[in-house]
Design a binder for these strands. Structure first.
Ligand code: ZN
Ligand code: ZN
Ligand code: ZN
Ligand code: ZN
Lengths: 169, 169
DNA sequence: CATAAACCTAAGTGTAACACCTAGGTCAAC
DNA sequence: GTTGACCTAGGTGTTACACTTAGGTTTATG
């Protein structure tokens, strides 16, 4: 199977397949004649795993770590269980952050609704914003939504598991 | 005021102040002697606006567009109202995405709880993942959470408002 | 006054996970 | 043989900063 075939088969894009290949998650066979990449059933299985894991909120790095186990014929279950629990904590936080921001925005829209437009003065850039300028540092900007995930990500499993070793050193 | 002073005064970081300065949102005075940047009350007011807007879910680009108005002594209210409504739609989607993902993850954890660990075989990398491999393409991976915002962002106000012009051409 | 701690600058790098674009080679069909 | 569909590697863009580097400055202290 060539990239586009595989991509269509698993409902993703050729670029995504190439990306996973580039970062070493997929290992296609490379034709010596034309350089084309070919993916067999095993690689399709890997891609399927990746997509399912991403779908469940795993990061690409998580998946790399899991493959590091399974490629050495170790069970990946332990990691899978640990990771999803950690990611759940993060998604719950995103959920709460989104909810809080949502409510704040609705409140703003409501309060602004009965206020007129105004031209900026030396005292105020926009009196609408001014309405909310006092309540700072309650919720860290919007970043919590996009960054909460990436922050604590690396730590889960980058610590080599209890003394056991893998073939590839 | 020097960077760190301003940053502390408004409960942010010096790096953040430098960032906003670099991209042209803040216009400090630069000392000819030592190159130090100095921020007066007006600039502090600008920073305050920025932080409040970010806090309410506005993007930096949104803020740039708003300043493009207010710096020309036009009202920013219109844009402010339009933008927050659009951002609210996006945050609501993030909220729903997070909720859906949250439930899916909880479901996974629940189902996996009474399943044993297994070593990978040629048929399956991880039978836990297999449990969820069928239900694809219901929710686009995790990306919706991080990318939903950035996707439709640029369009609001990059279209020059009905024929009116600003001084700086 | 010498020197160290604290502060400043610009410029570069890293972050997550791809999407998109470029330039150029390949393959199938008509 | 030529067009259109497909492939490659490599580079860029996305968001909003945090962090690091290398080096100059200011302030406090002995
Ligand atoms: Zn192991
Ligand atoms: Zn497993
Ligand atoms: Zn205008
Ligand atoms: Zn206004």
């Amino acid at each position: 199977m060539k990239v586009s075939n595989l991509a269509k088969a698993l409902n993703t894009t050729a670029d995504t397949v190439r990306y996973y290949t580039k970062i070493g998650l997929l290992h296609p066979q490379k034709s010596q004649l034309n350089g084309y990449m070919f993916y067999n059933a095993q690689q399709q299985q890997r891609l399927s795993f990746i997509l399912t894991a991403r779908h469940l909120g795993f990061s690409v790095k998580d998946i790399t770590n899991i493959f590091h186990e399974t490629d050495n014929n170790h069970t990946g279950c332990k990691l899978v269980r640990d990771i999803i629990k950690q990611r759940l904590v993060e998604v719950e936080q995103q959920f709460l952050d989104a909810q809080a921001l949502m409510n704040l925005m609705k409140q703003a829209i409501g309060e602004w609704d009965h206020l007129p437009d105004k031209t900026p003065t030396s005292q105020s850039i926009c009196h609408l914003m001014d309405t909310f300028s006092a309540m700072q540092s309650q919720i860290p900007p919007t970043k919590s939504l996009t960054e909460t995930l990436s922050s604590t990500k690396a730590n889960l499993a980058e610590t080599e598991h209890n003394g056991e070793m893998h073939e590839n050193k």
